[in-house]
């Protein structure tokens, strides 16, 4: 299942790229800016600002949707089944109501991704797999990445590393650049904020570092979670200890996806303010550059 192909992406990997966003994630980070990607099933998004009063197109195909006395659309989400989702896909004239998630077909996706091949080739760009957690669908990623390699196109994956090692291993030969998340080095805090196992991630890192063609570590710097000197320094320590890791990107927390929580009718629990602490990031950058284990080619970028 995938939910978007974003063309002309210029900030996730080298050159001009297309990003294939796959659906479903093994973590549940509270700061996630792509909440529609978490479920591995289709999701229903509703934007009341686009809804036309007097329209009953969605009500006619699904009893899970009603209008209340103020004419506002009420969605009984637990009652929205697969049949309703099929019907709702093309029913809303303004797309106030939209279904996020499409069945993935390797051939069709490759065809879409290859449309920008000339741009990838000219700019040393390529295709990036993202999500959700793309390696939950390792077979699909492997098939597409293999095809891209046959076409001479560079591939990258954005992963949280919270997947079985065999998934990583199966795509390894076909991925040129690993954009991997390391969110924290404390297992308990990680568990609390991201609902996952840090030891699984660390183990994967140790094994991946030996084999990845290019390894970039990306750190979302989130207020209250890891925005202290000590926490960032520990992350840097871990990153420089990995032989093949050449780059570290510090990504300051932003809230640009928070409106999507409203569309999904779920509460947003993380801070409503973006991180505004350039000194902290600069400090971490400096720490990494002067790190005793740091190698010549090791670079630290803010915002990636």
């Amino acid at each position: 299942m995938y939910f978007n192909i974003q063309r002309f992406s210029t900030h996730d990997g080298d050159g001009i790229r297309s990003i294939l966003f796959l659906k479903g994630c093994t973590l549940a980070c509270s700061w996630c800016q792509n909440p529609e990607s978490r479920s591995e099933k289709r999701s229903l998004l509703f934007d009341p600002s686009l809804c036309l009063s007097g329209c009953s197109a969605c009500l006619e195909v699904s009893s899970a949707i009603t209008r209340d006395h103020t004419d506002a659309v009420i969605i009984n989400r637990p009652a929205v089944n697969e049949l309703y989702l099929d019907r709702l896909k093309t029913v809303c004239p303004t797309k106030a109501l939209s279904v996020c998630g499409e069945q993935a077909h390797t051939d069709l996706l490759c065809e879409q991704l290859l449309k920008d091949k000339p741009f990838y080739i000219q700019s040393d760009g390529g295709v990036t797999f993202s999500g959700g957690e793309p390696l939950m669908q390792a077979e699909l990623v492997r098939d597409i990445a293999q095809r891209m390699h046959q076409e001479g196109i560079n591939t990258a994956v954005e992963t949280c590393m919270h997947v079985p090692w065999k998934n990583i291993e199966s795509v390894l030969p076909y991925i040129d650049c690993w954009l991997t998340d390391l969110k924290h080095t404390d297992a308990q805090k990680f568990k609390l904020w991201a609902k996952g196992s840090l030891s699984r991630i660390k183990n994967n890192f140790q094994r991946l570092a030996k084999q990845a063609k290019r390894l970039v570590i990306r750190v979302p710097v989130v207020p209250g979670f890891n925005d202290t000197r000590a926490e960032l320094q520990e992350i840097v320590d871990f990153a420089v200890s990995l032989e093949s890791c050449s780059e570290l990107h510090l990504l300051p927390y932003h809230t640009l996806g928070s409106n999507k929580y409203n569309l999904l009718d779920i509460k947003y629990l993380c801070s409503d303010k973006p991180l505004n602490n350039p000194e902290l990031l600069a400090d971490a950058q400096l720490y990494a550059q002067n790190h005793p284990l740091s190698r010549k080619q090791f670079t630290v970028k803010i915002r990636g």
């Binding site: 992406s9 300051p252 640009l256 915002r303």
Partner: peptide, 9 residues
């Protein structure tokens, strides 16, 4: 297209 932070949207 606008440049947001580390990415464009």
């Amino acid at each position: 297209v606008v440049r947001v932070a580390g990415y464009s949207a």
